[in-house]
Amino acid sequence: MKLLVCIKQVPDLESRFKPNSEGVWYNETDLAFRMNEYDEYAVEQAVQLREKMGDGCELTVLSIGPDRVVEAIKKSLAMGCDNAVHVQDSAASSKDPWQIASIISAYAKDKGFDVIFTGMQSQDRGSAQVGVTVAEQLGIACTTTVVGFVYDNGTITARRELEGGIKAAVKLNTPALVTCQLGLNIPRYPTLPNIMKAKKKEIVAIPVADLLNEAPLAATTSFHPPAKKGGGIVLEGDVGELVDKVIAILKDKTAVLR
C-alpha cells in the first residue's frame, strides 16, 4: 500500500504581515515558519494508517517551496513518514492553487498512491482548493473536511464536518484523497529517538520545472490590510486603569452592568 501526504509550511499566524516588494504577498523577513496546522492532522492520520498497515506500506510526504520547507518535511519524517519529496520552488507563493495542484498531480500520477492526505486548507492562503483539485486531476475519489477516518480493505469511511455541529458519514473506495479538518485526531509530537531516526530518511529533491506544465488561472493583484472600519475603541496601558475604564464603558454602553 502506498500513501502520500502533502504539507505546506506557513508563517506563524500571530505574526504581523507586511506586503513584499511586488505588493502581492507577504514579506518573509522576520517571519517564523512552521507546518500548516491542518496538515499536522493530515500527517498524523497518514502515520496512523501507515502503522496499522505495517510492513509493505510506504508513506511519502511531499512539500513544495524554498529550502525552508525542509524543516516541515523533517518534522513529518520524525512523526513517522518513511520518505520525502521536496519540490524545490523559491516562487511557490506566486503560484495559484491550480498550479500547485498540477505540480502534486504530475508527481503522483504514475506512483499508484492508494490514499492521499492533505489539509483542508492552508492557514495563510485558505483557498481550500488544492486537495480537491489534485483528486480531480488524478480522477480519484475525494471528500473534504474530514473529522473521522477509518480505513478497511480498500474502503474509507469518513466523517465530514458540516455547519452547526452536524456531521455526514461518507464511504469512498480507494484510490482516494481526503482533506483533513482540525480535530480529526491528536497530532503527535516527534520524540527525540524519532527525530534522530528521521535524519537517516531520504528526502528526494525535484526542481519544480520538472513537474509544472500549467499556467496560472488567476492572479493576485494586491496584498493589503483590511480597511479599518473605525468605531471600535482601542485601550492600552496599565491593567488596573484598563479595568476601571472597561467597567465605566460597560456601565455606559451596555445594559448588563448596573
Binding site: 508563517p11 492557514q123 488567476a218 493583484t221
Partner: peptide
Amino acid sequence: SFEVGCCNAKMRRSVKPAT
C-alpha cells in the same frame, strides 16, 4: 476583481481571474 481574506483574516488579497 475579487477581495478575499488571508493570513487568518489579518490581511486581504485582490484576485483577478484570467479565464
